[in-house]
Design a binder for these strands. Structure first.
Lengths: 203, 203
DNA sequence: TAACTTAAAAAGTAAGTTGTCACTTTTTAA
DNA sequence: TTAAAAAGTGACAACTTACTTTTTAAGTTA
């Protein structure tokens, strides 16, 4: 008989794996990639430290699985954007606001940790590559869905990449210098730039 | 009598401090911020591990001093650029090539480590802030020296910041995904973008 | 229900971490 | 020349790390 507190081994296993991955992601986001330890993860997950190694042969394996889950969650964000595209009227403005928010969201700030860590950790780098590829593709796909009238232009991808890089570059700068002395409006600046890029795409 | 191998205490102190800082910088650049350990630093500097604490009360102090030296070296790069500005003819092209190279140089890649580490290390963040501020100011100053005819335009700083952010964003992306499938020429793209920004500055 | 298998917890290990401390060597000053 | 100060060393204490091993609990099957 199955009761509420009685679970199959499979359920038990899946549940703790989920808890461990969520704890790892939480650790990554709140404390950074380099401060992920099996001890902290187990404490957050409210599991014993040893239990980690029942499900993941090494810490690397745990982290890799957590990264996969994190990117999955990230991808969902774009699915949502496609499902509920902004109204035609102020599409650009809303898209850029969303882009700013996304690239300064805890999840993506944590991803920058992974990027810089990958510089000196070739194993992490190889693990990261497919997810980054998929992520980049998803961004482009989302952009193409929201701006179908422009997506045929061969310079469309270039425009998207520029905008993404500007936003990402600014987000990372802000990690070390919260308030750069800017005499101009960031959002307005980005809108102007985007407007220009879009205009050249119409040519 | 002063001989070659006889040094004043001041000289001795300065020399080993220099060795320790250089070793710390080297450790940061080649292995990343999070892998700096007093043991490794002392090994690279060919000093005993204990000697570090004769000159720096904590590891943090050592790292902070090393960061200061790293930024000093970075600033020197810009001094050089001002001293030997590119010829007027293909100023933009040469500047952008230099900018690419700089933002993918070991020193600046290491600085990205500091940025992301600062996200979850408020002590590092406060230590970093003044250097980042100075660095940003130096970039702008350098740009203004090389493009004096544009620097009066109120949108000049905005243009510089956009270009810097694009380059930085791309450099960091490349840490995790060496070869993004780009169907366009990166250098050419950046030149086009810069050309546009400069043109709007002339308006 | 009893034997068996899998999962989780608890305890243990070896390697690596920062920082300390007693001591030696070098420089300085009396 | 000798005493004091500063710099440098190497061992080590206290702690944290990833991972292993042993023990207990939970779920499965005969």
């Amino acid at each position: 008989m199955r009761t509420l507190d009685r679970k199959t081994q499979e359920e038990r296993s899946a549940e703790t794996q989920g808890k461990l991955l969520d704890a790892t992601i939480s650790c990554l986001i709140t404390n950074g990639y380099n401060s992920i330890t099996t001890t902290k993860v187990s404490r957050i997950a409210k599991m014993s430290q040893g239990s980690i190694f029942k499900h993941y042969a090494t810490k690397q394996d745990l982290v890799a699985a957590a990264i996969a889950k994190l990117y999955d969650q990230l991808i969902e964000t774009y699915e949502f954007a496609i499902e509920f595209p902004p109204p035609e009227s102020d599409k650009i403005k809303l898209c850029l606001t969303a882009l700013w928010a996304l690239f300064e969201s805890p999840a993506l700030l944590a991803v920058y940790d992974l990027h810089t860590a990958a510089r000196t950790d070739s194993e992490l780098k190889s693990a990261l590559e497919p997810f980054e590829r998929r992520h980049r593709a998803k961004i482009r796909q989302t952009a193409a869905r929201i701006f179908p009238e422009l997506s045929e232009n061969p310079r469309f991808l270039m425009g998207i990449d520029i905008i993404i890089n500007v936003v990402q570059g600014a987000a990372i700068s802000r990690l070390a210098l919260e308030e750069p002395e800017v005499e101009y409006n960031r959002q307005q600046t980005l809108e102007d730039l985007t407007q220009h890029i879009l205009e050249t795409l119409h040519e």
